[in-house]
Amino acid sequence: MNLSIYQIGYLGSQAKDTPHSGKSKILTLGHARFLEQVTDTLWLQQLGIGVQNEWPLARWLWTAESAENDTLSADQDSLLSGSLLLVQPVYLSLQRDSFALEGLVKLSADEYNTLTDLLNQFFAEEQLQFLPSHTQQYWFLKTPHVWQLQTHFAQAALQRNIQRYMPTGPDAQRLRQIMNQVQMLMHEHPINQQRAQHGLAEVNSVWFSGVSADTLPPTSPDIKLVKSPVTLQSSIKDINEVLQQGVQSACMLVEDDSIVDWDTIYDNVRFKKIQRLDCYWPVAQGTLQVTLTSSDRWKLWRKPRTIASLVAHYDQTH
């Protein structure tokens, strides 16, 4: 199979659609199912990435960004020792006797740069580096030595008590200490005071996942990657670039609906330029997969469906 994988923007927006929009048609006419695996795991599987103890997401993301950014590439040699972890800003809500992960926090450029400097200054004596991402929505934590850890993706813990999703392993306590220190740093921080004034979720903690060693297994040779191997914010804005590669099937990880040309994508499936389209939407504790083929366009009896209605239907039937 000639499979093209491309990724759009993290933990998706819910763009409003009319019943006649390309996205609405894909959701309504396609075959939908809820997968209990988090989207990052599914995505790495699509890339043919093997795993022993944990998906090495942080290393893959760093490698992808380094391929696109010469300034990151210059630091590549320094990462051959120690561990690399993905660090995401989050908002934790206080429950009766625990915390729940309410969601990831999207930062402005100024907020991101301020927090990058703050974290690096605070943890400098411990030789911990918070390396910036060009997405400005997460960091890479570089440790001075290899840490033995098992972590969980943030999506798996969304809207749940975080206790069962906390890191485990010989070095887990150190990571928990860093989380506690960040929480103290961010308590009543000016960034959070400003966000609260504007009705925005505060950054009151960070979430660690995707712990990686210094090597990566090869990707499957049967998969064509468009733009970059895997990066949370890369996007394909011109579907013709995909079609020129003679694609038969396409996979889309949808994280920001607003930047997707849904009408063009739907039309290309409708007219059989793409034989099969698989879309993956990250939702709490799992993934919504919608598969559309050209023959599905005749299902005119179906009522319009949205991501929210499909997830609600799953919750009601399980």
Rank of each mutant, 00 (worst) to 15 (best):
S78Q: 15
P89M: 01
L85K: 05
L92K: 05
S73F: 12
A67D: 11
L80M: 07
S81H: 07
V87L: 03
L101D: 02
Q76W: 14
L94G: 07
L104M: 03
S66D: 13
L104D: 06
V105T: 06
L101T: 01
V105E: 03
L104I: 01
Q76K: 14
A67Y: 14
S73C: 09
G103L: 00
D75N: 15
A74E: 14
L92C: 10
S66A: 14
L72E: 01
Q76L: 07
S98N: 09
D70T: 11
D75W: 14
D97R: 03
E102H: 09
A100M: 11
S98Q: 07
G82V: 05
S73M: 11
S98M: 10
F99I: 02
S98I: 07
V87F: 00
N69L: 04
K106G: 02
L92T: 10
L92G: 07
D77T: 14
S93A: 09
L79F: 15
L94P: 05
R96I: 08
L80Y: 15
D70M: 12
L86M: 08
S66H: 10
L92F: 11
S93Y: 02
E68Y: 12
L80K: 09
A100G: 07
D97A: 09
L94Q: 10
S98F: 10
S98H: 12
G82M: 14
Q88V: 05
G103A: 13
Q95R: 07
L85E: 06
G103P: 08
A100D: 11
F99P: 03
S78A: 12
S83W: 10
S78P: 15
S93L: 02
F99G: 00
S98K: 09
L101S: 03
Q76M: 11
G82I: 03
Q88K: 09
S81F: 12
V87A: 02
S83Q: 14
